[in-house]
Design a protein around this nucleic acid. Structure first.
Lengths: 140, 140
DNA sequence: ACTGATACTGATAATCACTCTCAGTTACGG
DNA sequence: CCGTAACTGAGAGTGATTATCAGTATCAGT
């Protein structure tokens, strides 16, 4: 889980949203926790700060954060998992051995032109998840 | 990586598995149906051939097929969706307008060497889903 | 053909992740 | 302060998936 980051990832709420203690608790729990997490785990951690917190509020807050790309549901994994994301285009390296998720800015999706020519398809976005073994697990 | 395809997609069961009428019905329903489908849709169609078919059996068969990469859960879409896959490495083009899923052999994931150098990560596999607008919807 | 082991089955209950509802509460611009 | 729209927790509701279990089908060895 140890991946040096220079600046802590911003985890922001949308502009219109009110800053409530409940939302703060969720955001803090995300910020302080591991990069990837399940809703249940997050709920548990956020409740340590805000014991009355309701599960529905956690889902509501996650939805807000998803809209700002602060987090992203983790595709291809057991359900109910999210990853905390830094801003900007990036993809995920998922370790099959320990489950940690790393980000990479490396990206090599098929080019728009190629997709258009070969498939008549106009791409808007893409998701790339790479599975394998992380540095730590390879060392061990 | 890219395998051009002449023959219709094989939809095979694992070698050890018994070929029961129920499984046949599920496999046939997949083969004859659209490329992407929900479990509920599949269940309905398979029951036309095998009316006594149980839902649990459908799930069990889907799990078998998933293990052989004959189908794949569709990441990032509403739950309970699968895509029928051709053999060989490929990725999916998902139309945001009509929801159809197309396959492409175009693939440009970050190179193993690059991932290893930059992240110490040893990749084994990857998943790439491209979202956009398909040829038909662009025409309309 | 018999037989025991094992794989498979449908029905149903149980579990899970998530969503909805609603009455009460709160943040915050004015 | 105050009005109000946004937010809240609790819990019921929903839909997908998994687990359980007793009965059934198939297979390998005789």
């Amino acid at each position: 889980m140890a991946h040096p980051r220079k600046t802590p990832d911003p985890v922001d709420l949308p502009q219109r949203a009110r800053l409530t203690p409940q939302r703060l608790a969720v955001v803090e729990a995300i910020r302080r926790g591991p990069r990837s997490f399940t809703v249940a785990e997050l709920y548990d951690r956020a409740r340590r700060q805000e014991p009355k917190l309701g599960l529905a509020t956690v889902y509501r807050t996650l939805e807000l954060l998803r809209r700002t790309d602060a987090i992203r549901p983790l595709a291809g994994s057991p359900r109910a998992e999210y990853v905390r994301c830094s801003p900007g285009h990036h993809h995920h390296l998922i370790c099959l051995s320990c489950g940690t998720v790393e980000e990479t800015e490396l990206c090599a999706a098929p080019s728009d032109a190629e997709l258009r020519r070969r498939h008549g398809f106009a791409p808007e976005s893409h998701e790339l998840d790479v599975y394998g073994t992380c540095a730590e697990c390879r060392a061990a």
